[in-house]
């Protein structure tokens, strides 16, 4: 009769590879943070702007289906497009939809990210981030984590992935869904080949938002144990930096964007600057803007006063510094939890 050893039994199954251990933490974190009803409600709300932009893409799709330019010009959809981009670009679009599709597509998805989704990122990160590290430090769960074959790096990557996941649900996913919608509204597959560059652009901007917000939030969570104060600091930093940037811009560079570096002060303006460059908004819209004063004014309002590369450098520096702060705090779990 076989005798079964009832003592400690070592795990003899297949272990997950080293490189994927962070995924366990990430999954657990996503599951835990995902229990919040408020988060769920807010993400639903964050997808609402999709309706507006979906209509815009529908309008654009309808116009390209017309056989003659005059037929298109007579449609109400044409008036909507004129309202959005001004008459010259709308005219050019119905004359040559294929040639102007990348500009219209990129501009719409850029605006989608610029107007509503960046604000949603701030709120989503404020909802999921504050307890990510502080709770582990407070409850001494960190000691348990690090007693397993999990390194500090695994821990940090796992936690960062939680923020990235939720940021993705209000940036990458809806933007890709919007793109899929735009393709669905297009009469030909040609649209896909013309505008496929939108996908890597959306991904890149979403990635910048994920890392650029996730890393500082983890650092704040590792330093401040009070989630309410942390959420306040987070929102305060976004709003105050945005207001400070606007005030400095108005006062120090009145009536000009030339040499205006004040956007660097603002969290959201930095992300905007990166998105502006990644989507190549200036390159795509400038030709039409040259003949449309209204579009030119809008374009200049969006054009960052500083080189977006400075924003990228700033984002990388802040992210690196933040992750270093987390690494230091996580490296001394006993000290942190005793506080």
């Amino acid at each position: 009769m076989p005798v079964v050893a009832s003592g400690y039994r070592r795990w003899e199954g297949v272990r997950r590879g080293r490189a994927w251990r962070w995924l366990v933490l990430a999954r657990a974190g996503v599951r835990l943070t995902g229990r919040s009803r408020w988060l769920f409600r807010f993400i639903l709300m964050a997808w609402l702007p999709l309706l507006y932009y979906g209509v815009a893409f529908f309008v654009v799709g309808q116009l390209t289906e017309q056989r003659t330019i005059d037929a298109a010009r007579g449609m109400w959809q044409f008036d909507v497009l004129r309202g959005m981009f001004g008459t010259p670009l709308a005219e050019r679009f119905i004359e040559d939809p294929a040639g102007h599709r990348p500009a219209i597509w990129s501009a719409l998805i850029y605006m989608f990210l610029h107007y509503t989704q960046i604000f949603c990122v701030m709120i989503v990160v404020a909802l999921v981030g504050p307890r990510l590290v502080s709770e582990d430090l407070r409850s001494r769960a960190l000691t348990l984590y690090l007693a397993r074959p999990i390194t500090r790096l695994d821990y940090i990557v796992g936690k960062l992935a939680v923020v990235c996941f939720w940021v993705g649900t209000v940036t990458l996913l809806p933007a890709l869904a919007l793109y899929a919608l735009s393709i669905a509204f297009s009469p030909s597959v040609e649209a896909l080949t013309h505008t496929i560059a939108v996908v890597p652009r959306v991904t890149l901007v979403s990635l910048a938002l994920m890392v650029g917000t996730g890393a500082p939030m983890l650092a704040l969570s590792a330093v401040f144990p009070n989630p309410r104060l942390l959420a306040f600091l987070w929102a305060g930093a976004w709003l105050m930096s945005s207001v400070a940037s606007r005030v400095l811009g108005l006062a120090l560079f009145p009536g000009t964007r030339e040499g205006d570096w004040t956007g660097l002060v603002s969290v959201s303006a930095n992300f905007d600057a990166i998105a502006f460059r990644v989507f190549d908004i200036d390159g795509l819209l400038r030709p039409a803007a040259e003949v449309s004063p209204r579009l030119l004014r809008t374009l200049e309002r969006f054009t960052p006063g500083h080189d977006p590369l400075w924003s990228v450098a700033l984002l990388l520096a802040v992210a690196a510094l933040s992750l270093a702060v987390v690494a230091v705090r996580v490296g001394r779990p006993g000290e942190a939890s005793a506080r």
Binding site: N226, L229, L248, L252
Partner: peptide, 27 residues
């Protein structure tokens, strides 16, 4: 108690400093 007054104090002083910078350096 705690870090709250420091955070608020820093915010208020930062805003005041902004006033100084604007008045001092604006054309």
């Amino acid at each position: 108690g705690g870090p709250r007054p420091w955070v608020l104090g820093a915010l208020a002083l930062g805003v005041a400093a902004l006033g100084f910078v604007v008045r001092r350096f604006a054309p």
